[in-house]
């Protein structure tokens, strides 16, 4: 199963996505939660903790900063950049906007 949640801000996208991920994981599925919002908050509703969510490293920025070597496979990306959330959900934050863009 591969689903994406969309809608206007504040309608409950993150709450639904995070809760679905936890529920499916509790049913015994392997769950990958992908936060594709440039203002990533999925960690909050997954139960990773708000402050920790704010500190999660995004794939894109880590690569841009040259902190880690590029991974050439999906598994590698999830492995290197993922975070463990409760019930065994694996969370990956794709990108985040955190500073002014000079360009």
């Amino acid at each position: 199963m591969k689903i994406a949640v969309a809608g206007k801000g504040g309608v409950g996208k993150t709450t639904l996505a995070g809760t679905l991920a936890r529920a499916f994981a509790r049913d015994g599925r392997d769950v990958l939660a992908l936060d594709a919002d440039t203002n990533p908050m999925l960690g909050v509703s997954l139960g990773v903790g708000a402050e920790r969510t704010d500190l999660l490293v995004a794939v894109r920025q880590a690569l841009d900063d040259g902190e880690v070597e590029h991974q050439t496979t999906g598994e590698g990306l999830v492995d290197v950049f993922g975070t463990d959330a409760p019930d065994g959900v694996r969370l990956v934050v794709c990108t985040r906007i955190e500073r002014p863009n000079p360009g």
Binding site: T14, N39, M41, V44, A50, T53, D54, I97, E98, R99, P100
Partner: peptide
Amino acid sequence: WQSALTARRILRIARLR
């Protein structure tokens, strides 16, 4: 929390500018 973290990020960006 979600709106507070968002506000932090925006305030930080504004001040960097």
